[in-house]
Design a protein around this nucleic acid. Sequence first.
RNA 1: ACACUUUGCUGCUCUAUCGCGGUUUCAAUCUUGGAUUGGAAAUGAGGAAAGUCCGGACAACGUAGAGUAUCACACCAUCUAACGGAUGGGGUUCUGAGUUUUCAGAAUACAGAAAGUGUCGCAGAAAAUAACCGCCCCCAACUUGUUGGGGGUAAGGGUGAAAAUGUGCGGUAAGAGCGCACGACUUAUCAUGGUAACAUGGAAAGUGGAUAAACCUUGUGAGUUGAAAUGCCAUGUAUAUUUCGAUUCUCCAACUUGUUGGAGACUGGGUUGCUCGCCUAGCUGAAUAAGGUCGGAAGGGGUAGGCAGAUAGAGCCCAAAAGUGAUUUUGGGUCUAGAUAAAUGAUAGAGAUUUUGUUUUCAAAAUACAGGAUCCGGCUUAUAGGCAGAGUGUUUGG
RNA 2: GGUCCGUUCGUCUAACGGCUAGGACGCCAGGUUUUCAUCCUGGUAAUAGGGGUUCGAUUCCCCUACGGACUG
Length: 132
Amino acid sequence: MTDQSFNRKEHLKNVSIIESIFSDGKSFAVYPIRLIWVKSLLYKTTPTFQVAFTVPKRKFPKAVDRNRIKRQITEAYRLNKNILFSKIPPDNIHQWAMIFIYTGKKNPNYSQIEKGMVTILDRLKLGDRPGK
RNA sequence: ACACUUUGCUGCUCUAUCGCGGUUUCAAUCUUGGAUUGGAAAUGAGGAAAGUCCGGACAACGUAGAGUAUCACACCAUCUAACGGAUGGGGUUCUGAGUUUUCAGAAUACAGAAAGUGUCGCAGAAAAUAACCGCCCCCAACUUGUUGGGGGUAAGGGUGAAAAUGUGCGGUAAGAGCGCACGACUUAUCAUGGUAACAUGGAAAGUGGAUAAACCUUGUGAGUUGAAAUGCCAUGUAUAUUUCGAUUCUCCAACUUGUUGGAGACUGGGUUGCUCGCCUAGCUGAAUAAGGUCGGAAGGGGUAGGCAGAUAGAGCCCAAAAGUGAUUUUGGGUCUAGAUAAAUGAUAGAGAUUUUGUUUUCAAAAUACAGGAUCCGGCUUAUAGGCAGAGUGUUUGG
RNA sequence: GGUCCGUUCGUCUAACGGCUAGGACGCCAGGUUUUCAUCCUGGUAAUAGGGGUUCGAUUCCCCUACGGACUG
């Protein structure tokens, strides 16, 4: 049985970490989602992955649309995050902070978002990247 | 019955699994408080939550007072915590019916142009002290019906959004509210009705073009700033640094003879934007040095976590009574989000409504506008479908 | 959350409540040139939307839409 909960601690809230992600984070995109992330040393109090979700206000001016897209992305992450946990190396000393940005232009359906989320989580390599 | 207009109400439903926010409760671990993890229960976004166009509650600052500026509002009464909101009424304008007296509906920033200033393009003689043409009178000249000069006159003149109170009679050289009759309008006034706005009627004076969503005048009201207000706790730090200004003078009294006290001027600061007024400061020192203090500006360092504010209230529902109504009173019942990088979603199934195809069946698609952020009362704007009421028109039947 | 400002040809801008809404850069057509550029001539094209005040609105007032600035 996999863990499907999504607590408040797993939300990314620290302002300085978010600014560092936007200034020197690494990114790639799978339609309709773009992922930006940064890796740092592990603290004991915070969980391994901290995640935030945003939708640009320029493309979706109404708050109803933005809320719905954020909820759907959150749901897709919650149901598929065991892909990430299964890829953690055994002697892990790092933690990851990630931001998912919705880059599409229309209101999506959930199946599209879930497909993009699964491929993103598959493609993200957590192990020892040689360039690091 | 259908169509249109308008007003009000409503704003898809249920089940299972996983997951999120706060509340209550149970268990475990660490334990001073308390924190973390897990389980359970009930619960969790609107009529506009929106725009931020008004009004309040609440909070901070200010709080002897006066004047003025600035801003807002402007028929009357009532309602309300308050309002630029609502209800009822009045006036004006428009539309329809009907017809000369009304009825119905809609709109209405609806104080003052007779306090003053400004503006009124083009056209037109003239756009606000109206004589260009025309009409009339007097004088002069001669070519004897024209010219020139002086004066009177707003009845007529192709314009314009607007042309000096309309029609008729009298009157006059020609004319003119110059006079009269019937009207129109304005001002202050009297009587009746009405709480009042106002209506009706009488007598008097008068005829003043429009524009105040031009300046303005009158009346009424408003202190300023807004939950990023504000209070407390924790963490952290630097009363750092630079620069500008002020720290003055006179008089009186006392004695301890250079100090103290009082009064005044001046300067700085506070006092709602300004003024007066009020409060307060002007130290050490021989010194224009130096230090201290006060005020302004520049610039820097730190934190960016938690609690309160913050959800029981001008609350919601039902009934009765008062009132034309907005609304109020009384009685009973009820507790119903409280987040802070910010909680409502996904999957599966069933049903409801609408549309399309097919037409017993069935299949597919869609289900509006839109998401709390301190809280209320309004206004404005967006809104699929459904329900109810009113009005108008058409058709059918009696 | 709060306070305030603005919207004029495709772009940048001007305007006393009063003429056909002016100018520059563009674009189009013609001319000049062997051709292109430059230059000359002409044309095109706008008051964010709705309502009101006024004889008359880009201008004054109200509502809506959009854009922007400030505020810890």
